[in-house]
């Protein structure tokens, strides 16, 4: 899908590409270069297909969160409460499942409900009372983190049988896998969360690209005032962007919960920053109006790949993760900034 919208055409005519498509192409190219580079130079792990699917398994929640984050950023806002929400959801669901009569469906409903509640309040404050989204979601983050410890202070694992069964469900990918030491073929697998994440990516991509509502998000992010004059309901559009973002954070919270299988106040710490970083690496601009969901997915994968590379290169001291992540972000930002500046110059001349 990504090829169709970007890379193929891009080399022929970079100048005519929209900002969104140009940045998207860069992200995808860099991701593949990086991964292929890792395969060549580090070999081993990266040659196994399961390594890639493990990245997917680990990052599915982050991909979902980042989709929501990209949407809000495209609309010109930001939501830093998503990490806190994920923690609150995993803790609440864990407590619910631990109670007598706590059902799987109930916990899922609870996750969605928490997401929607956050979206409702934050969206209303941002869109209709015109309060800065940074402040609103900052408060949202504080609230979610605080509430998590109020719900339950100590972290604990969930023992609910049906949940554990769901958590451990592995979907084998036919025909893909590797041969282990004993010479047996081991099928590569993904967790359920990955399917959910891919569904979210596809739905969000379709919404943003092929619906009128989707284009409205871009318009509002590009120029709020103009969007209003063009007859778009700016407030409603902003509200919806926060609503959807929080809803996705709700789903992501549950996917995260399924992945880790426990509740803890320190879960998903820094997830909001990772989501923002993924979106940016994926070509979304914080100024609004530019971005693409496919890019966001690749942004998340790029970040995770870099971390894998660092670990397999033997640099496993704690600080390396922070520093490489930052270096990666820095690199992308500078590349984007330089390219955009060049483009502007080209347009003038």
């Amino acid at each position: 899908m990504e090829k169709k919208i970007g890379t193929k055409k891009s080399f022929l005519n970079i100048k005519d590409m929209t900002d969104t498509n140009l940045l998207l192409s860069i992200t995808i190219i860099v991701f593949f270069l990086m991964y292929i580079g890792a395969m060549i130079f580090l070999g081993e792990g990266f040659l196994k297909s399961q390594t890639f699917f493990n990245i997917l398994n680990d990052q599915s929640a982050l991909i979902i969160v980042s989709c929501g984050m990209s949407l809000v950023m495209i609309t010109g806002g930001i939501d830093i409460s998503v990490g806190g929400m994920a923690a609150l959801i995993s803790m609440s669901c864990a407590v619910l499942l631990d109670m007598k009569g706590g059902s799987l469906v109930g916990s899922m409903g609870l996750a969605i409900l928490i997401g929607l509640a956050f979206g409702l309040v934050q969206g209303y404050l941002v869109a209709f009372l015109d309060i800065q989204p940074f402040i609103v979601s900052l408060a949202g983050m504080f609230f979610a983190r605080g509430m998590t410890t109020i719900v339950n202070t100590a972290p604990f694992n969930v023992a609910n049988e049906s949940f554990v069964a769901l958590k451990n469900t592995r979907l084998n990918i036919p025909g893909v896998g590797s041969v282990n030491k004993n010479g047996d073929f081991v099928n590569a697998y993904v967790e359920i969360g990955v399917i959910v994440a891919l569904l979210v990516v596809i739905v969000m991509f379709v919404v943003l690209r092929w619906t009128k509502l989707g284009r409205n998000f871009y318009a509002v992010g590009g120029n709020k005032q103009s969007a209003l004059m063009l007859g778009i309901n700016v407030k409603l559009t902003k509200f919806l962007s926060h609503m959807i973002c929080s809803f996705l954070a709700g789903i992501a919270g549950y996917v995260y919960f399924m992945h880790v299988g426990s509740g803890s106040a320190s879960h998903a710490s820094g997830a909001e920053m990772n989501a923002i970083a993924s979106s940016i690496i994926g070509g979304t601009m914080l100024t609004g109006g530019v971005g693409n969901i496919i890019g966001t997915m690749f942004g998340t994968l790029s970040l995770a790949t870099i971390q894998n590379i660092v670990t397999s290169a033997g640099l496993d001291e704690a600080w390396w993760t922070g520093i490489t992540n930052a270096a990666m972000l820095c690199l992308f930002l500078v590349i984007q900034s330089v390219i955009m500046a060049q483009r502007k110059k080209a347009q003038v001349g």
């Binding site: 970083a277 914080l286 100024t287 704690a318 390396w320 922070g322 930052a326 955009m340």
Partner: peptide
């Protein structure tokens, strides 16, 4: 990063935010 590369401040400082404590260590 902010002034010359025209990167939005929150994003530009996200870099040091991510790396800072590691650098301190």
């Amino acid at each position: 990063l902010v002034a010359y590369f025209k990167i939005q401040p929150m994003v530009a400082t996200l870099i040091l935010f991510t790396a800072g404590r590691s650098i301190a260590a």
